[in-house]
Design a protein around this nucleic acid. Structure first.
Length: 482
RNA sequence: GCGGAAGUAGCUCAGUUGGUAGAGCGACAGCCUUCCAAGCUGUAGGUCGCGGGUUCGAACCUCGUCUUCCGCUCCA
């Protein structure tokens, strides 16, 4: 574990040093739990995003993509349950420094009463709590906790702070005149942009159930504690797909998507024992089944993707709040119904972090006479920020001119990088450090027969081949993904 | 949010009992005429996280603040 923590630190440093990820607004000391993607990080992230997008919308004929706005009508968040469930009153015990959700604390107290045979008292406690919560009466809640002599299980005292509200949604104003402005929220999840567009897409696309709507976009959560690099950020990017199905078929589709999504991750070239499913026992308010795909990060197994059977909760609520029918006529069963939904929701930033964790390697290359090592990022070539580096052996004798010609040929096909400074070995190492899978070196023989050497990142081996077959070789490697 | 630790050049760090900062690597420009880092020459970079206070004088003492890490806590 200690060495894993070290590896995690090393990855964070490497990301900063080599232009992958920087703390946001770093010149002003940074902004907590916000990060910026640099020149190579943004390429990597974009490649992952495109890979996911393709695997959803191109490889499945019945899945289409949308790009919904971050701002949504405020009622959206009432219908989705976020207004009620995304802001929890909390209270701290001053002695033990433990923080509790107020409802959890009082519920535990009620349970204790019930166990002690005081069923009526327990019910009364719950009823009082609910009425206080409903009116957001925080002073009353604190007084109630004190009156009931609820104690912290750790310190055993009733030395409580005030009840405080933690709203996990970011809000802002729509409308520039203050008195006319409406409070709106930055979306805490992208899913609702799909649900409110369900009918638009279904009708305009003449979609037949089962079908899916995919989306990639930013979401925002005012986490109480956001930490661990890009694992938990306040602003993050989700890649989600909502799959609309016939009610009653959710079990089977849930299992189907669990399998599909696991395959997707393993197909990134990651060993399957680095993943596991974690089934939720305590289900969110919208779900009848839910699990996470967890990846074994250097900080341990952590959630990478959520797969949720969301029932008809969202569409039903939007129907209720908007008074627009969210129904689908299914000719096969000759019925109108509100579709059920299976959701797959994967964190893009977490996928970036997974690929970095997977790719980062410190290799000892020492021989008997020489100590040597390198840091290499072994990304799958299709996802690597730069595919090919073009490196003239020296910057004389017309080699750079040939290099420029090779660049012109290749740069329209994939991302290339040109470099003529420093020794060839140093340049190889720099390319290893950003995960470039192929380096092409132009040497004096190139002038005679127009052949170059291609050097492979992982094996460090070289082959000589004509410039004319370069693109074919690299593109075939990019397709086979090795 | 609580507790603990840390913050000096891009990175890793040094800086003696307070006297306005150094090294190695890196970067940049050249040279060596070079197929796997650490050869040579030169150059540039720091109001010592930020802001008060003590002092003739603060990187060093003190208070606050920000950020990061570790542990709790929280987590749709």
């Amino acid at each position: 574990m200690a060495s894993d923590t070290k590896k995690f630190q090393a990855i964070i440093s490497h990301c900063k040093e080599y232009g992958f990820i920087f703390p946001s607004s770093e010149i002003y000391d940074g902004l907590s739990a916000v990060y910026d993607y640099g020149q190579w990080g943004s390429e990597l992230k974009k490649n992952i995003r495109e890979h996911w997008w393709k695997s959803m919308t191109q490889f499945h004929e019945n899945i289409v993509g949308i790009d919904a706005a971050i701002f949504m009508h405020p009622t959206t968040w009432k219908a989705s349950g976020h207004v009620d469930n995304f802001s929890d009153p909390m209270i701290d015990n001053r002695d033990s420094k433990k923080r509790y959700r107020v409802d959890h604390l009082i519920e535990a107290h009620a349970e204790a009463l019930e166990t002690a045979g005081k069923k009526d008292a327990a019910e009364k406690v719950i009823a009082t709590m609910e009425s206080l919560l409903a009116t957001n009466d925080y002073t009353g809640l604190k007084k109630f906790i004190e009156d009931e002599k609820i104690k912290c299980s750790v310190s055993g005292t009733s030395n409580w702070t005030d009840v405080r509200q933690f709203n996990l949604m970011f809000s802002t104003q729509l409308g520039s005149v203050a008195e006319d402005a409406n409070e709106i929220f930055l979306r805490p999840e992208t899913a609702q942009g799909i649900f409110v567009n369900f009918l638009n897409v279904q009708k305009s696309g003449r979609m037949k159930i089962p079908f899916g709507i995919a989306q990639v976009g930013k979401a925002f959560r005012n986490e109480i504690v956001a930490r661990q690099f890009i694992f938990r950020m306040r602003e993050f990017e989700q890649m989600e797909m909502q799959y609309f199905i016939r009610p009653g078929s959710q079990k089977e589709w849930y299992e189907f998507w669990k399998g599909e999504r696991m395959k997707w991750h393993v197909n990134l070239g990651i060993s399957s024992d680095k993943f596991r499913f974690h089934d939720h026992t305590k289900l969110a308010h919208y779900a009848d089944a839910a699990c996470d795909i967890e990846y074994n990060f250097p900080i341990g197994f952590k959630e990478l993707e959520g797969i949720h059977s969301r029932t008809d909760f969202d569409l039903k609520n939007h129907q209720e709040f908007s008074r627009k029918k969210m129904q689908y006529f299914d000719p096969e069963v000759n019925q109108n119904y509100i579709p059920y939904v299976i959701e797959t929701s994967v964190g893009l930033d977490r996928t970036v972090m997974m690929l970095l964790s997977e790719a980062y390697q410190e290799e000892d290359l020492s021989t008997n006479d020489k100590q040597d090592s390198r840091v290499v990022l072994k990304f799958p070539p299709t996802l690597a920020p730069v595919k090919l580096a073009v490196l003239p052996l020296t910057k004389k004798d017309g080699l750079p001119e040939i290099g420029r010609r090779v660049m012109d040929i290749c740069k329209t096909r994939f991302k290339c990088f040109y470099e003529e400074k420093d020794t060839i070995g140093k340049r190889y190492r720099r390319m290893d450090a950003i995960g470039t899978p192929f380096c092409v070196t132009i040497d004096h023989q190139t002038k005679e027969d127009d052949t170059v050497t291609i050097r492979f990142r992982d094996s460090m081996l070289q082959e000589r081949l004509p410039v004319s077959s370069l693109i074919t070789l690299i593109e075939s490697r990019l397709q086979s993904n090795n």
